[in-house]
Design a protein around this nucleic acid. Structure first.
Lengths: 116, 116
DNA sequence: GACGAACGATACGGTAGCGTAACGACAGCC
DNA sequence: GGCTGTCGTTACGCTACCGTATCGTTCGTC
């Protein structure tokens, strides 16, 4: 069930949601950070630093830094993989799920608001 | 003609588009910068620094800085208002229009790709 | 002409991101 | 046990953004 949008609707939706985000998001995530967060929550685990780096096409330090920041904000957690202690497994958190739920609501509301 | 999305579709759309953006956008605009750009191109002129600041709920230096950066990248231009030389009028550019057109395509493609 | 208000820009100190390069910890294999 | 390769992290120098406060210019009014 694909979603078909006109160019005007597509940009209008982005406009509305971005505006709301800027207005009320005290967190101010980077585009990259948001992409990482969505990847973690929408794609089945496990997630590793290396995997995320490859998926986003960025270097590993970018992932480490983003996880540091988002970890401090409680959006994600890291745990060492006990089966292979070189790996780090990235875990979801309740706060992270709530944050994305809120973003989803924003997007849905933005879509409803289009071209009145 | 509003657009109705399920929570899964909403976040899926954001996921897809954000991922693409991170992959291929060499410009790496901030969330605020993108909001400003969309505001300038989707809302009828004239646009002023003060007006944009009020609309986004941020301070004026934020707008000035964003216009500096996006100006260097050719996405917007500034001109003094000759009728009231205290004001600065923000103008659109061809490059800016192309950039947003490209973003629109990305969003539309993302929507089509949902839930295969 | 002088004064107050409005506008956008700038200065300042601080914070957080970036890319490149190097690092320590660990696993697998000989 | 020692080598090699793979993890994720850290170090370094740099750039860009942040908020607050202040500045110079211009307008409107007296």
């Amino acid at each position: 069930m694909p979603v078909d949008l006109t160019p005007s609707q597509a940009l209008g939706l982005w406009h509305e949601v971005t505006l709301q985000q800027v207005h009320e998001d005290g967190r101010d995530l980077t585009l990259r950070q948001l992409a990482i967060l969505l990847e973690i929550y929408l794609v089945p685990p496990p997630h590793t630093v290396r995997g995320l780096a490859a998926r986003l096409g960025v270097t590993k330090p970018v992932i480490t830094r983003a996880l540091d920041t988002m970890g401090e904000q409680g959006l994600v957690t890291r745990m060492r993989d006990e089966r292979d202690r070189r790996n780090v497994v990235i875990k979801r958190t309740v706060d992270g799920a709530l944050y994305l739920e809120r973003l989803g609501d924003l997007i849905i509301a933005g879509g409803r608001k289009l071209a009145p």
